[in-house]
Amino acid sequence: MGKGIWVYLQKEGESVVEESLMGLSVGRKLAKEASLPLEALCVGEGIARFQGAPSRIYGLVGEDLQAGYDVASYGEAIHYLCQRERPDLILFPSTTQGQDLASWLGGCAGAAVVVGAREVSFRDGGFVAARLELDGKAVVEYLLEGFPAAVSLEQAVGDMPQAGDELQAQVLRVEVPPVSRQGSVRISPSSGEARKVDLRSAKAIVAVGAGVRDRETFDQVCTLASVLGAELGATRAAVDAGWLGHEHQIGQTGVKVKPDLYLACGISGAVQHRVGMVESGTIVSINLDPQAPIFRFSHYCVVGDVRQVVPRLVELLRR
C-alpha cells in the first residue's frame, strides 16, 4: 500500500475519452478515502493539462505501441509499468478497450481484476468492487486481494469533472521494452463519426428496433419523435439495418440513457440493450409479440404492430 491509485486515460486523438474522465472522479474519491495519491497512465506522450487532476501521468512509449491500439501490446506495456511501480489499484474506463485491458491484467497469475464494476470502495484497508450479476438480481462484492489489482467500470459510473479541476500534472515518459510475439493484429480506424446526438441528456427518447422494417414505418417513427420532442435512439440491430448511425445506439456498446420517457418501437429487449435503458423514467414499448422480453421492464406494454400503432399515436398527439 502507498504507491497510489491509477486511472487509465484512453486517448482519442489529443483528448481523453469521457469514460476515463469519469474514472478519474471515482479514483479521486477512492484516493481520498485510502489517503493515496491519484495518478494516471496513458499510451503515447502524456497530456499535461486536462480536466480531472491526477498529480502525475505516466506516458508509455515504445516500439510495440507505435502501430496503435492492440490488446496484447497495450496490455503488456501496462503490465510492465505495474511491475515497476506497483500501484495499489488501476481503474479502467467502461469502454471495450478498458474491458480488454483490465482482462489482460486479469490473466496474470494471482491478479485481482473485476470487469464491469458499478462501485469500488475502500474498506478495512482493502478495495472492494461490486458488480451486478444474475440477470440484474444480485450484486456480488469482490475483495481485491491479489496483484495487480484492477477494475473496469460499468457505463455511466462516476461524474464528469468540473472545469475547476484542471491542474498541471507531472508527466513521466516511460520507455517500454519490446516483447517478441508471434502473430499480428492491425486495426484500421473506426468508421464511426463523432457523436452528434446527445442521448445522455435527452428528456424523451423514441428508440427504433429491428421491428421497424421499412422506410415508411421508419419515417412515421421519426414523426412521432418530433411530435414528442424526443431524440431518436436505436438498437444495434436497427443500426446494422442502416436506419440510424452508431451514435444513436443505446446499450452495452452504445450509450446508457435515463430519459423521463423511453418509447421502444419494435425492440425485443435483449440484455445488451436493456442495460442501456432500464433506468429510464417511464418505459413504453410497442411490440407485436405479447411475450417479448421488453414487456417485463416496461410500464406500458403496447401489444400491436408499429405500422399501425405509431401513426395512431401521432394522430392522437396532434389532436
Partner: peptide, 9 residues
C-alpha cells in the same frame, strides 16, 4: 465497438 465498426487484419 463504441464508435462503430473497425476493420482488422
Amino acid at each position: 465497438v463504441e464508435k462503430g465498426v473497425e476493420l482488422v487484419e
